[in-house]
Design a protein around this nucleic acid. Structure first.
Lengths: 214, 214
DNA sequence: CCGGGCCGACCGACCGTTCATGAGAAACTA
DNA sequence: TAGTTTCTCATGAACGGTCGGTCGGCCCGG
């Protein structure tokens, strides 16, 4: 029943020769763990279930990672790192606010897709442990910076002014973040077209009375 | 620490005189339980934690409800009942597709707000138990019916045609469903204005090149 | 023969649930 | 009015089971 990775215990296509008995390394354990976490929910995933899915014993997991919480922490760091790096890029800091906003939104969609399972895990946190609360804090910081960008674009006159910018931010993030709940990479919808669709819906809406593009 | 309801054990403002020892009834237990479930996540909420929040013992909970799963089932039925009743109303069945769509979306936002904690619980399910899978199935049925409405509006020419209707549906639901993650009733944003904002963002987008309203 | 990878047995804590019984207010009887 | 019954809500100890995590030792390829 466990969707175990066959034969070569999933030890990741590790090009470099390694000593010792072949098997998992931390990266491949993490990859599979995140998948299982997303399938059952983090809290509902016991180390026993995780071990079944890995095809190794429960105690073997502790050879690769010190605790269940560390597994979560590694995953969340990867997700948050991807998001935070967006705002460090030059295109996010220079130019007209609405152009910067579009850049950030496109990159956010891209990161969601590239690191799909990791970001999925992040977006489903409830903040039960200190690890989760730290991650939620970092995510909130990211959200606030984007919210500031939206306010700037609004003040520039690029965005409609009849909706509270905080409402706009939340609805926008709601739309974008929902991607992790349904997007399947490798399907007919490419990441590029997905980003286009998101931008189109966000800026021009369903009716599509598109303004003459400058 | 538990945010227990003081003095009158929270037995709901029940006007009619009741026999027996005063205390909780099923409804008030359910209300608080759903709140706690939403704060910690359903799986992460133990009956012990729940009992602490109720201010009664763990075993007392079983006087009101036969199991933790039944508590979840009651909550999900309430949420799903609200959503499903939308599509049974006449305004959802007659008239132009885009008018029907707007009606359904407005009512959906309203139900989300009216039954906020219950719908929140529903939207966070992972499908671990049979109860959860049944609920997810009912939710999927609702989504599909709205998706059909979107397709109809598109075929009518009311909606833009450069985005796959399934993508539209998902982004739209992503935006609307996100409400449960941030909306606080009683604040400065009224449910009516919220629905207006959602409709505006969905149909006309952030740029707001609104077409002359007929 | 070293060292990374793994195992089975085990731990204390906590899980959801059960049970026999107590507490307390309304309703009935005298 | 006083006493008794009836009804609902609540209790605390305990059950079998599962949780995250530990420990000591075996496996096996470079």
């Amino acid at each position: 029943m466990p969707s175990q990775t066959t034969s070569t215990n999933g030890a990741a296509a590790n090009g470099s020769a390694k000593r010792g008995r072949p098997g998992y390394d931390q990266q491949s354990v993490l990859r599979i763990a995140v998948d299982v976490f997303n399938r059952h929910g983090y809290d509902a995933t016991s180390m026993g279930i995780l071990a079944d899915n890995l095809g190794i014993s429960k105690s073997a997991i502790y050879h690769h990672v010190p605790s269940k919480g560390d597994l979560l922490k590694l995953a969340l760091d990867h997700a948050l790192g991807g998001l935070e790096s967006i705002l460090e890029q030059p295109e996010a800091a220079a130019g007209a606010a609405d152009a910067r906003l579009e850049f950030v939104l496109r990159r956010t969609v891209a990161v969601l897709v590239e690191r799909l399972p990791f970001v999925t895990l992040l977006l489903r946190l409830r903040g039960n442990t200190e690890i989760e609360r730290n991650a939620l804090e970092r995510r909130r910081t990211f959200d606030h910076k984007v919210a500031a960008l939206i306010s700037a674009a609004r003040d520039e006159g690029s965005l409609r002014q009849d909706i509270d910018p905080r409402t706009v931010t939340r609805l926008l993030f709601g739309m974008i973040n929902s991607i992790v709940e349904w997007y399947k990479p490798g399907g007919s919808l490419s990441p590029g077209k997905l980003a286009d669709d998101v931008i189109t819906m966000a800026f021009d809406g369903l009716h599509g009375h598109t303004a003459p593009t400058a």
